[in-house]
Design a protein around this nucleic acid. Structure first.
Lengths: 182, 182
DNA sequence: GCATGATTAGACCAATCAGTCTATACCTGA
DNA sequence: TCAGGTATAGACTGATTGGTCTAATCATGC
């Protein structure tokens, strides 16, 4: 399966944005990693770097949504679902040998103080909470508690994504499930 | 009390690093905000931007440690301490009218993939956990639980710092105490 | 095989980046 | 009042930034 130019750009950008953040990741650097000339970037993303970042974050957001959906589908309790998600994210960290930002954080919130960026990030975060809450209720949790637990899970995961970078280890991510009911 | 040049630089850098992150905050911009010429910066911080960032993060780390220490001193339970801390942080957000990064995150983890940066951030985070854990035990919590709850509090606060930026509101920070025992 | 729009290719540009350097002003102690 | 170190001041530099522009190439329909 041949990757399209657009996909190459999004993959390379995802990688660099979450490793270095929006500002520190240079356009030339992304282009080089993608093996794509500058002209192609501005053909596919006329808005330049911000356009690419927005699209990249949405793509990563959908990727993680899928990961979460599968985790919950296989689970018989909310905690089991969160455990699967955390293990999966921690495994990604370990496999990369790098402790990056959450792709949404690195790409959007590390970028310019643009309202479009803020809203795109908000939309992705809220979609995750909604997904989690829906499954929590499906698995027997009361609505109010499902809401609070889902938001707590998001904060714990985002926080762990940060401190894991400082730790140089993904261990803290695997400890999240215990924190949810501590 | 006259502010020294060094202090002016650290204050301005703290402000800009947490608002835009290390990479996006330009040196010229910091200098202008501080009202200090370039020569002075390299006199006080011979290592340039990285030196300034390291010092800035440590200063902000101590500031928040003090805030936490006072919050716990005035409290009769762990939850009350966390509540005071969260309210104080949320108040800072509201007072600024901006929803910034945690100063440590923005300054150090938003910076270069330098080992010195990573270790400095780790040291600050760990000092916060230690402080919180000590007070949790003092307030009657068992050691293992004190450790876990303190780490959970750190993750929740760091995570909320991120999502508050997307929300454009500090409300989520005020909901953290409920999550700790949910 | 020719024409047309889509795509690739990369030279080029102004602006900005962190950092260097020299000159001057300031302060303190003699 | 002078000497000498400290600090301020900002012009300047080379590298890099995101973005523009034109030319070449590719694919597709006639």
């Amino acid at each position: 399966m041949e990757k399209t130019t657009r996909e190459k750009l999004i993959y390379a950008a995802t990688d660099l944005f979450r490793r270095k953040g929006y500002s520190a990741a240079g356009l030339t650097e992304i282009l080089q990693a993608a093996g794509v000339p500058k002209g192609s970037l501005y053909h596919h993303f006329p808005g330049g770097k911000p356009d690419l970042a927005l699209e990249t974050a949405r793509w990563a957001g959908r990727y993680l949504s899928r990961l979460m959906e599968e985790a919950f589908q296989e689970s018989t309790s909310f905690k089991e679902g969160v455990t699967r998600i955390c293990n999966a994210i921690a495994d990604i960290h370990d496999a990369r040998g790098a402790w990056d930002f959450c792709p949404v954080t690195g790409t959007l919130l590390g970028g310019p103080a643009d309202e479009r960026f803020r809203l795109a990030a908000l939309e992705i975060f809220e979609s995750w909470v909604k997904l989690s809450k829906t499954h929590a209720i499906r698995l027997g949790m009361a609505e109010a508690r499902a809401e609070l637990q889902s938001r707590a899970a998001l904060l714990l995961i985002e926080g762990a994504w940060i401190t894991a970078r400082a730790d140089g280890s993904a261990d803290i991510i695997r400890r999240i499930p215990d924190m949810l009911e501590a």
